[in-house]
Structure formats: structure tokens, C-alpha cells
Amino acid sequence: AQGNKYPGVGRDATPKEVAKWDIDVRPDFKGLPAGSGSVAKGQEVWESKCAHCHGVFGESGEVFSPLIGGTTAEDIKTGRVANLNRSDYPGRTTLMKVATVSTLWDYINRAMPWTNPKSLTTEEVYSVTAFMLNLANIVPDNYVLSDKNIAEVQARMPNRNGMTTAHAMWPGNEFAGVKKPDTANKVCMKDCTPEPKLASFLPDFARNAHGNLLEQNRMVGAQHGVDTTKPEPK
């Protein structure tokens, strides 16, 4: 209809072209290709193509933060990961955070293995996803994940109820968010606070932890960089 406005610019995409690039999978599973894969097959994929970066149990923090851990059977029931409410809990794994199983499927399919993205077959993606879900005790050892049963898995995701869009930080009107920002600081100009106290600063031993700051500032200027290879002059 609008095509006449910009003659000569652009052309129709062919079905093959769209099929090749349109690989995204939505939470409602729109875009998910038909297929399946077992936990057992997934273990093979995992151990040959994933484990050296993410650890045998998805626990490694050497290349990226751990994928698996921190979720419980109770969480699978409630759909809320309780450890997310513990400020003493160390780190947050992927499975603790993710609410939508489609996200895992989509991302593994488009981006993993990291050095060789988009190399997995559909069956490999199903199966390695099944394996990860099994590591997190979401599906049993003999599970075969498929486009038919993935909605059931979704209903067991440990943090499936852990998301809200009730906030003022979506820059559109598509969600029923809130309008009022979280904070309401005032433009106060005089005697606004009591005498301020220092609450947090870098410990002395970290003085040179980011390299010599003298070499991270211009050699001329109103201020120069501090020579952090030397102790602070008193």
C-alpha cells in the first residue's frame, strides 16, 4: 500500500529467507519448531559441547556465572525461587532467575555453544534444554522434551511467578505499568541534610587495583591523576 511512497527501495522477502532468519521463540511458544529431545541425548550434547565452559553440572563460574543451582522442589511448586529473597545467598544462577522456558530454548538455539552459535540441530536444542531442566530437577531423568509437552514444563519453572511489570520503567504504554517513579527527591537548596558522614569508601589495599590512575588521566588539566603506585601522602 505504502510501497509507492519510496519506489525502488526494498523488495519482498522470500519464504526461505524468512524461515532462515526468523528463529525467535516466544513465551507462548510461537516460533518453536516441531521436534523433541531426551535428557539422555541432552547429556551427550552437554558433555561434548557445553560442560567445558559451564561445568559438568552447570555449576561453573569460570567462563560465565553458573547456570544451575539454588532452586528447590518447593520453588517448583510455588513458582517463586525462595533464595532470591535471601540477601546472604551467594550469586544467582540462570535457573533461579528465568521464568520462561522458551527463553532457554531460544537462546541456546541462537547463541550456544558460544564459539559456534547456530550449529545445533533442533533435536540437540530440545535435548540439551531437557538435560539442563533435569539438572535442576524440573523434569525426570527419562524425560523427552518436545513442542507438545513444553507447556507442561513451563508450569513447573521454579521462578515462573517471579516477574512483574508493575513498575514505571517500561518506556511505552504496552504494559499496565505504573506511572509514578520510585523516588521523589526534591530540589532543596539550603540545609537539606544533617552533616554527612562517610558510609563507604575503597579500602587502602585497593588503591592500585585498577592500575596506576596517574596513567588514566590526561597529563595536563585542572586535576591530574593520582599516582597509585605510591602510598597516599598524609
Partner: peptide, 25 residues
């Protein structure tokens, strides 16, 4: 779409353990 970087990262963990999703601003 709940892509990886809007369903695992770039979400804001609030007191109580709920994540705010699609906090883009």
C-alpha cells in the same frame, strides 16, 4: 519476547525476591 537479555539479565531484583521485568528506561 522474553529474550535472554530480558528474562535472565537486565531485570531488577527487588526486596522480597521479585524481579521487575522489562525495566528499560
Amino acid at each position: 519476547y522474553a529474550s535472554k537479555d530480558e528474562a535472565i539479565h537486565y531485570m531488577d531484583l527487588q526486596p522480597g525476591g521479585l524481579h521487575r521485568q522489562y525495566t528499560n528506561l
